[in-house]
Simulated assay, not measured.
Amino acid sequence: MDGLQQKQIGIAADRRAKEISTLIQKQSGIPVVYSIQGKQQLNEEISSQDIKHLLEEEFDWAVLTTGIGARTLENTATAIGIDKHFIKKLRQLHLAIRGSKTSAWLKEHSLEPTILSEDGTMDRLLQDLRDEFDKNGPKRIFLQAYNQDDAKLKNELETIGYSVYLSKPYSFEPPTPSIVNGLREAIIEKSLDAVVFTSKTQVINLFADNDRNSEITAACNEKVLAVAVGKVTAQELKNNGIKRVVEPDNQKMGAMIVALNNYYNTVS
């Protein structure tokens, strides 16, 4: 049964928007794309400096928070001809990671994490590192992050007692204001039945510096269903007061649309 029959489904994603649109159309839904991720900006010079710091200095841990970040560092290392040294250094360190894409990247290089966030969140990863500190004391961390919560993560690790080097191999430029405002208006006017979010960044951009946030939250709790690809994105929606959030057990795009379809089949 097509639970998405004639339903207008907003898509906040960028790179995967076409793929998600196809999945929605197969369930007889109508995709409406509002890409509010913001353009990804690779920081090649910074990545090069970060890799040299990693190779030249002493570290006990490497904390990898995103698959994109790990792959960006690898690509930069390859471009400057030190990729084998980069992977060798990681093999010598304890690795703490979160996210399925980061885990997949490690497997490509036969790397094993010492700590893997069970629920994919930074909160769980930080708790595991706090437990590790309680057992083994101060250590030095190479932290790969990006411009979302990077300062917060560094500060929290330093508060625990770690010495932290922050690596930011990529960042996100702000999204086009007219597109963000278009999605806000569509939610407030309730012209959409649901909106799917594939990253925490998209949720942050939706609610950034906006005096109509309470209206967006109210519309989502009343009519416009919020859909998240995974726990991190779902938690950011909940942090903004949205109580109805659909998320799949398996944090994949296809599973997200199946979960959305099943939701409507259940409530209809």
Score class of each variant (00 low, 15 high):
Ser117Ala: 13
Met1Ala: 10
Glu118Asn: 11
Gln37Asp: 10
Val267Pro: 01
Arg130Pro: 00
Trp105Ala: 04
Val227Arg: 07
Leu111Cys: 08
Ile179Ser: 09
Leu192Ile: 07
Val232Cys: 05
Lys243Ala: 11
Ser214Gly: 05
Glu189Tyr: 01
Asn261His: 06
Ile9Glu: 08
Gln40Arg: 15
Ser117Tyr: 00
Arg98Met: 10
Ala226Pro: 06
Glu156Asn: 13
Leu90Pro: 07
Thr233Tyr: 05
Gly69Met: 05
Phe59Ile: 11
Ala234Thr: 03
Phe59Val: 10
Ile30Gly: 01
Ile9Gly: 06
Ala145Met: 06
Gly81Leu: 01
Thr76Ala: 11
Thr72His: 05
Ala145Asp: 06
Lys135Thr: 12
Arg212Met: 01
Asn239Val: 01
Asp119Ile: 07
Lys223Val: 00
Ile9His: 08
Gly67Met: 03
Asn136Glu: 08
Asp131Arg: 15
Val232Lys: 12
Glu57Phe: 07
Glu185Phe: 09
Ala96Glu: 09
Ser199Ile: 01
Ile160Pro: 02
Ala255Gln: 11
Arg71His: 08
Phe207Cys: 05
Gly69Cys: 04
Ala226Tyr: 05
Ile9Ala: 06
Gln6Tyr: 14
Ala186Gly: 09
Thr198Asp: 05
Ile51Arg: 06
Ser191Asp: 10
Lys101Ser: 12
Gly137Met: 08
Arg71Lys: 13
Glu247Cys: 00
Thr176Lys: 15
Tyr264Asp: 06
Lys252Thr: 14
Gly161Pro: 07
Phe59Cys: 07
Val232Gly: 04
Lys107Ser: 13
Arg184Ser: 03
Leu157His: 08
Ala17Val: 02
Lys88Gly: 06
Trp61Arg: 03
Glu173Gln: 14
Ser47Cys: 13
Gly38Lys: 01
Ala255Asp: 15
Ser103Ile: 00
Ala186Gln: 09
Asp123His: 12
Val32Leu: 15
Val258Ala: 12
Lys18Ala: 13
Asp128Lys: 14
Glu173Asn: 14
Val33Met: 11
Ala194Thr: 08
Ala96Arg: 09
Glu189Thr: 13
Phe197Leu: 09
Asp60Tyr: 04
Asp249Tyr: 02
His94Phe: 10
Phe207Gln: 00
Thr217Pro: 02
Arg140Asn: 12
His53Asp: 08
Ser100Asn: 11
Ser163Phe: 10
Asn205Ile: 06
Gly29Tyr: 06
Ala259Ile: 09
Glu74Val: 05
Gln41Ile: 15
Ser171Leu: 13
Asp211Val: 13
Glu189Ser: 13
Val245Trp: 14
Gln27Asn: 10
Phe172Tyr: 14
Ser35Trp: 02
Thr217Asn: 03
Gly182Arg: 10
Cys220Val: 04
Ala104Glu: 12
Phe133Pro: 03
Thr266Cys: 03
Asp128Ala: 14
Ser48Lys: 13
His53Met: 12
Ile20Pro: 09
Gly120Phe: 04
Asp211Asn: 15
Arg184Phe: 08
Leu206Pro: 05
Glu158Ala: 07
